[in-house]
Structure formats: structure tokens, C-alpha cells
């Protein structure tokens, strides 16, 4: 249990970042969250670079889910 919730949350958060519904997140999209989250631009850039596993500058739903599930399960263990 929890895995479906986790995926739902990941999808929800992806859409929070991908406000234009492009299907991917850019660093600019991430930096836009600066207004909504208590994180600095540097932190958000760091988050993006960590999640962007292949470093191509685009965050796919898959990369986002991977990062989120890593966080999710490390929190629950």
C-alpha cells in the first residue's frame, strides 16, 4: 500500500511544476516555484539538477517520479 498514493502525489507535484502542461519541467519552471515554496533559487536549481538524472535540462515525469519515490521511501523507512 502507499505506492499508488505515492504515484498520485508525484503526478500532482509534477503538474504543480509543469504549469503549462508541456509534459516536462525546465529549470525555469522550477525557479517559478520560488514564489510558492520556502526555497531559494539556488536550492530549486539544486533540486532540478538532482532530479535531472541524464542532465539534458528537461525533467520528465519518469525522472520526477524516481526522485519522489526515493524521497518517499527514505522518509517511510
Amino acid at each position: 500500500p502507499g505506492q499508488l498514493d505515492m504515484l498520485k502525489k508525484a503526478q500532482e507535484f509534477f503538474q504543480t511544476c509543469d504549469t503549462e502542461g508541456k509534459g516536462f519541467i525546465t529549470k525555469k519552471d522550477m525557479q517559478r516555484l520560488h514564489n510558492e515554496l520556502p526555497l531559494s533559487l539556488e536550492d530549486l536549481e539544486d533540486v532540478f539538477d538532482t532530479l535531472d538524472a541524464d542532465g539534458n535540462g528537461f525533467l520528465t515525469p519518469e525522472e520526477f517520479n524516481n526522485g519522489f519515490s526515493h524521497f518517499f521511501f527514505s522518509q517511510n523507512n
Partner: peptide, 29 residues
Amino acid sequence: DPNMKAGATSEGVLANFFNSLLSKKTGSP
């Protein structure tokens, strides 16, 4: 070792990021 520090920091920043998103959505963490 700066690299090790960067790795640990990234993990913390990631946790911070997702926790912030969680509290933004639900109103509480």
C-alpha cells in the same frame, strides 16, 4: 570532500523541496 558534501546537501534539499510541496498541498506536513 566537497563532492560528498554536495551529495548530502542535494538529498536534504530534495527532501526539503518535497516536504514543502506536501505541506503546500495538504496545509500540514
